[in-house]
Amino acid sequence: MIRFRNKDNEIYNGRYIKVDGMVIVNPTEDMLVQMGYEKEEYEPEVPVRAEPDTGEVINQLKELLADKVTELSDEEAAAKPALFPSWSSRVGMEVKAGERLWFNGRLYKVLQDHTPELQHQPSVYTAALYAEIGDTDPTKGTIENPISFQVGMELKEGLIYTQDGVLYKCVEGLANCVWNLKDIPRYAQVYDPETGGTAETAEAGSSKDSPIEFRAGMGLVTEKYYKQAGIVYKCLRDLPNCMYDLAILVAQKFVEEA
């Protein structure tokens, strides 16, 4: 490689030189020579690494274990999520049902063959594509260590969950739960730690006092009550996969204000 050095043993930095208080930016080779710089060849020093890069080691270990991790059960896999390919590394590539992918510190199972898109990350909105593989800590799910519920996780009968500061006990298992626990008394009921029992709650949507929190995409069921933007509506006609604000549906006689 080539560099320029002057009589004061200063090496040109590749950007500018100072001459009599003036700064000359990007001088030509001829200008450098006129200013007393001499061209010289040199071999750049290559730093010697005492240890391999940590990222390099991790990547090679993951490649080495790639075939082995596929043999792990879901429970074993959930305890070692970082061993699996990241979801982002599969964007634009076809994935198969049953594959397990790491995303945002959690492990997800692919539910159907598809090609991941950047705007469709694992979440409640892509529940048809991915299911979270739950935490297998044996102490989780007890009154002393309840599971912090996340939308999309699996509910297991007998375990204790917490959401919005309220304890719930799962009374019937539910895979890939995409509802708030307070809205599904069939599967989860408020838990009383003093009595060790569950408190029966009104079925969600059965009355104006226990409306279902409406979310775009859910189905509307006749005679059920729904709440959106602080207003409670009663459904007059079934409407599957509703993508509209409920206020718009009043004029179309699908709902009415309760």
Rank of each mutant, 00 (worst) to 15 (best):
I2M: 09
R3D: 09
F4G: 00
N6K: 07
D8Y: 06
N9C: 06
N9H: 10
E10A: 11
Y12L: 06
G14D: 09
R15Y: 12
M22G: 07
M22L: 12
I24R: 00
V25F: 08
E29S: 14
M35D: 05
P44D: 10
E45R: 08
P47V: 01
R49S: 14
T54K: 14
G55A: 00
G55H: 09
G55K: 04
V57Y: 05
N59P: 06
Q60M: 13
L61A: 10
E63P: 03
A66K: 13
A66P: 01
A66W: 07
K68L: 11
V69C: 01
L72E: 00
K80I: 13
L83Y: 08
F84D: 00
P85A: 00
S86A: 14
M93E: 15
K96R: 15
G98H: 10
R100H: 00
L101P: 07
F103S: 10
L107N: 07
V110P: 06
L111Y: 08
P116G: 01
E117I: 10
L118M: 13
H120F: 15
H120T: 10
S123A: 04
Y125F: 14
Y125E: 14
T126C: 00
A128Q: 14
A128N: 15
I133R: 00
G134L: 03
T136Q: 12
D137W: 07
G141S: 07
E144G: 10
E144D: 15
I147G: 02
S148D: 15
S148T: 13
F149M: 04
V151K: 14
M153E: 15
E154Y: 00
E157Y: 05
E157W: 05
G158C: 02
G158D: 04
L159N: 08
Y161G: 04
T162K: 03
G165A: 01
L167P: 05
Y168C: 06
V171T: 01
L174W: 10
V178P: 08
N180W: 02
N180D: 13
L181H: 05
K182Q: 13
Q189I: 01
Y191A: 08
T195K: 11
T195H: 04
A199L: 15
E200K: 12
E200G: 04
A204L: 05
A204T: 03
G205N: 05
P211Q: 05
I212V: 09
E213N: 13
E213T: 13
E213G: 03
F214C: 07
A216N: 12
G217S: 01
V221K: 08
E223V: 04
Q228W: 02
L236K: 06
R237D: 11
P240V: 08
C242M: 05
Y244H: 14
Y244E: 14
Y244Q: 15
D245R: 13
L246V: 12
L246Y: 02
L249A: 03
L249I: 11
A251C: 07
Q252I: 03
F254W: 12
E256H: 10
E257V: 15
E257P: 00
E257K: 15
A258M: 01
A258C: 12
A258Q: 05
